[in-house]
């Protein structure tokens, strides 16, 4: 492996950007390809598929053997609101392998006693998101019920292309939210991508059950990510 490639690959991974190390298994030469870099021909098709599926694979092209090692950023879950649901969600996200962080400016809610094992920010979302920006490998669940806290991160999440955006609230609450998000400049299609009522329809009633429904919906969205991206590519092709 070329030391320059290793540095470049690690740099992409630290920045939470998808990257692929392409190795010619015949001569050992390698290069780093970022998601979206144009690569022509059958190799380009194989690379796109690898980014979509997230699976590393060998590709035989024109009698040459290549190894495509895909590195997707680990999925992250940002929860707006240090509420009862978030407490249950914190342990579930950990089990499912998601990095979770909670943002809530209400210091009475966002206490280390209530959230011992999770990254917790007792600050306004707009301040935290400036230093920890959202990206396509991040899910956002807004669960405070308070428009002052929830609305802005929802708008940011949709614009950042987060693979999942969910908002707690009844259909009535959500109808009002739709109006507010429109005035923040989101299109109908963008607003339609927000999951609300939040969570899979499993009849969840308790905070812990709602957390299960949210976690399930986040996982479903992540696993369908490749499919969704493929449909988008088809649309723009």
């Amino acid at each position: 492996m070329d030391p320059y490639c290793l540095k470049k690959l690690n740099q992409e991974r630290r920045a939470r950007r998808a990257a692929l190390l392409l190795t010619d298994l015949g001569d050992g030469r390698d290069r780093v390809i970022k998601e979206g870099d144009p690569v022509a021909g059958p190799l380009g098709i194989a690379i796109n598929q690898a980014f979509l599926s997230g699976g590393s694979t060998v590709a035989e092209i024109d009698g040459r053997s290549f190894f495509l090692n895909v590195h997707l950023p680990p999925p992250r879950l940002v929860v707006i609101g240090a509420v009862h649901i978030s407490q249950a969600l914190a342990s579930m996200a950990k089990i499912a392998g998601y990095d979770m962080e909670i943002i809530d400016p209400r210091t009475a809610f966002a206490t280390p006693e209530r959230f011992p094992d999770v990254s917790l920010f007792a600050e306004w979302p707009q301040d935290i998101l400036q230093t920890r920006p959202l990206d396509p490998y991040t899910a956002v669940a807004a669960v405070t019920h308070d428009p002052k806290i929830d609305d802005l991160p929802l708008e940011r999440a949709v614009n950042a292309g987060c693979f999942y955006v969910g908002a707690l609230g009844s259909r009535k609450t959500h109808a009002k939210r739709v109006d507010r998000l429109k005035s923040l400049g989101l299109s109908d299609e963008q607003i339609g991508s927000i999951h609300s009522p939040i969570g899979l329809d499993i009849g969840a009633a308790s905070p812990a059950e709602i957390a299960v429904a949210i976690m399930g919906e986040v996982i479903k969205a992540f696993r369908a990510r490749g499919l969704r991206t493929a449909l988008q590519l088809e649309k723009t092709a």
């Binding site: 991974r13 630290r14 997230g54 699976g55 590393s56 895909v70 590195h71 997707l72 680990p74 999925p75 392998g97 998601y98 990095d99």
Partner: peptide, 8 residues
């Protein structure tokens, strides 16, 4: 695929 949340 590298999806695990492996500490650096």
């Amino acid at each position: 695929m590298t999806l695990q949340t492996t500490p650096e």
